[in-house]
Design a protein around this nucleic acid. Structure first.
Lengths: 222, 222
DNA sequence: TCCTCAATGTTGTAATTACAACAGAAATGT
DNA sequence: ACATTTCTGTTGTAATTACAACATTGAGGA
């Protein structure tokens, strides 16, 4: 457990909390670290979630399966992100997503009940933590709206240009790497992979973008 | 101001707070009520948001305009909902949405800075409020994921069936009213209105659904 | 080095959609 | 009651997409 302290204390979840406090809090919240492997389900659709899952290392896809069996990638999460945080506040709500591990991952698991209810020895901690949780959830909210913007574009071309332009803005540079392979990007943008590949080629040949594997360059201001 | 107290105290934002406390809090948070008319913009894309907007009465559309001029309705909000709550936690982030008033609306406006920082006389209030904010944002988050599910369906038919089936589940009945007119529903589901009308007719003639104006009935379990 | 397999790119076709144009219905104001 | 306007439904056509089938590329292992 101790070997993860440096990772844990750098997460936004424990922002504003000193090293000594951290140890007390982790005990108080029943914190432990669990390893997941490629394809492991961390959260399953239909489950009730009562823990906070903080990614210390690795990559997690938040997915949903349609009634007709197609996969939707809602978001991709990395170190310092929380998984299914919104589900923890309402005990009676079932998870509406799956969280699937991509490659190896280390997840810190905390008991939300213990985090959210006051106790004598750590009143201030709880207060800081809940503020941090609110901030983290806000960020996720804004990203979900951005995803809605991306997939709400009318054509494959517009979806790609909107997505790439948003990524470019986030990276603050015209050259950047995207976290998806082609199939994942297609699942994220809700389009057919091969049709997307075709449109990417077209955009490249028109000189609007350039790319090699996951490295993209935007040639124009959208 | 006093005449709105009953509405305010019934909102989830002030859940768990007594009448006497409420008055103190509203003063402490610099709360006031503002009236908006049809078409008024409550939040504009690009603004920095530092206030909490609680809808006391009326209807608000959270919208986004695409680069190409088409409207996307992200969500529709009513009494007891907060507008742009996620934007308030990160001071440096510009609003990525417009919030537009539909018809008349009454909005309670609070100063978030005063809500989120401690003061001597109301420490406990702040603590309750931030918990409530977390809960509210969680709910909104879950709804955004539901919207992503709706618009991620492949065909107009699947989008309609998924949306209607989700609405039916939320209302816990097969007969329910939807909050959108046809154009708004099309903007919400990201499809063409006339194509949607056509598909609705088809679903009705096939006996899968029935509807009259905004009242819908689902005839099958999806 | 060669083989294998997974990822990516390309193409043709059938299905789906957007769009425009218009018709009918319902709501609104006078 | 009538006129006007807004909302909803219908239809044909051009544009876009999904899908299947196959080609190419590239990485990793034997």
């Amino acid at each position: 457990m101790e070997k993860y302290y440096s990772k844990i204390k750098n997460s936004p979840l424990f922002c504003g909390i000193t090293d000594e406090e951290l140890e007390k809090m982790l005990k108080c919240f029943g914190g432990y670290v669990k390893k997941y492997e490629d394809g492991d389900m961390i959260i399953r659709q239909g489950e009730t979630i009562s823990k906070i899952y903080l990614i210390l290392d690795g990559e997690v896809n938040v997915e949903k399966e349609t009634y007709w069996g197609r996969r939707i990638i809602i978001q991709k999460l990395y170190a310092n992100n929380n998984i299914g945080l919104a589900l923890v506040a309402s005990k009676n709500i079932e998870a509406n997503i799956n969280a699937m591990c991509v490659g190896h991952a280390l997840i810190l698991i905390l008991n939300y009940e213990k985090c959210s209810t006051m106790c004598q020895n750590a009143c201030m901690h709880h207060s800081i933590l809940i503020r941090n949780l609110f901030k983290i959830l806000s960020k996720e909210n804004i990203e979900l709206i951005e995803k809605i913007e991306n997939i709400s574009q009318k054509t494959i071309r517009d979806k790609l240009l909107t997505y790439l332009s948003n990524e470019s803005q986030k990276h603050r540079t015209n050259i950047f790497e995207i976290p998806f392979n082609r199939q994942e990007l297609a699942d994220y943008l809700n389009i057919d992979r091969s049709a997307m590949s075709f449109e990417l080629s077209k955009l490249k040949s028109e000189g609007l973008i350039d790319y090699k594997k996951n490295k993209f360059a935007l040639k124009v201001e959208i």
